[in-house]
Simulated assay, not measured.
Amino acid sequence: MGDIDGLEPGARVVVAMSGGVDSSVVAAVMAAQGFEVVGVTLQLYDHGNATGRKGACCAGQDIHDARQVAERLGIAHYVLDFEERFRRAVIDDFADTYAAGRTPIPCVRCNQRVKFRDLLDIARDLGAAALATGHYARRIEGASGVELHRGADPARDQSYFLFATTQQQLDFLRFPLGSLVKDETRAVAARYGLPVAEKPDSQDICFVPHGDHARTVAALRPDAAQPGEIVDVGGKPLGRHEGIARFTVGQRRKLGVSASERLYVVGIDAGRHRIMVGPRRAALCGEAWLADMNWLDAEAPPAAGLAVEVQHRYNEPPTAAHVEPAGDGRMKVRFATPQVGVAPGQACVVYAGARLLGGGWIDRAPLLQAPDEEAGAA
């Protein structure tokens, strides 16, 4: 176990400690391997007051747990107040994206704008040789430089959330858990006597109380909680809803309407506060345009494009696709098999086998069967 390529024996390593079992094991293993470990916990919201929810990250109880682990290991530990930065970079973006009828991924934004930018800079300021995290992904020295690969355990792989990591950041990062499965991580925690060995995994978005993201968005952007119509693809009213933030493209549960066949959200019209639903065949998408691309491969796709696998949602399996440049730093993705739930605002991540090549944010994903103009489209 261990991702220590390029690190000198005894080098200083900053470990991002969330208070959970994964990052705690990283700190324990790096310390046991003789590195000078400095634990850093980011206070991201609520001024450290715990919400009382099991599985919430970065709240008061988690800070307490991280401190206990650091004391157990005998390592330095610092708590940094990042609440304002986190609010601006992650929470506001989360609310704005839902209010625009799109579906955000706050964990990617947190990695991109806080952990792998601000925290990484702090690690360098502390004289560290690396920043180690508890992500289940693998950093591999390839022929042309460092590569990012899926974690060895498909059920725990978190590489999708790291697609926006730059090559420079990847050079400095380490992911010691990438070759483990979760049970192995817990076994290591128990072996080192860590007090978080049996702590539940994070299940919800850390800053969303009670797991109700729509309530959080409504408090920040009241317009997203404005009631509106639910219509079919022809524009026929089927019911009412209590805010567009309760819906995402591809959703098929808790729609609030019934029909003779299963319905899916096929479009969200934020301007008219309208949710459009239809059967699965109406929800199929054959291609998507990606914006704000980040490419980790040494060579970007040629003009003729590249055959790859893509993952257009974290909980979706990878699917065969063809990607090609679309100008202005954008990318066009053509799915080999039409997909359901290709939602603007989500990430589409590009892989060659286990290797992550890059990815971007889904900007546009036209349906194979265009809905009536009168119904409005997302």
Rank of each mutant, 00 (worst) to 15 (best):
D3C: 13
D3M: 04
I4G: 00
D5V: 11
E8H: 00
V26G: 01
E36Q: 13
V38G: 07
G39I: 10
T41M: 01
T41Q: 08
G55R: 06
R67Y: 08
Y78A: 14
V79Q: 05
F94N: 11
F94S: 02
G101E: 01
P106R: 05
P106W: 03
V108W: 06
D125C: 11
D125H: 13
A129K: 07
R138Q: 14
S144D: 15
A152Y: 07
Y160S: 10
F172L: 08
L173S: 13
P176S: 12
V181Q: 04
K182R: 12
R186D: 02
A190Q: 15
A190R: 15
Y192R: 08
G193F: 02
P200H: 05
C206V: 05
T216F: 08
R221S: 03
R221A: 09
G234R: 04
A245W: 04
F247D: 08
G250V: 04
I268V: 12
G278F: 00
L284Y: 03
C285P: 08
E299A: 14
A300D: 03
G305D: 12
A307C: 09
A307L: 11
Q311F: 02
V323Q: 09
M331F: 05
V333Q: 14
Q346F: 12
L356G: 11
G359Y: 06
I362A: 03
D363F: 03
P366G: 02
E373M: 02
A375F: 04
A377L: 11
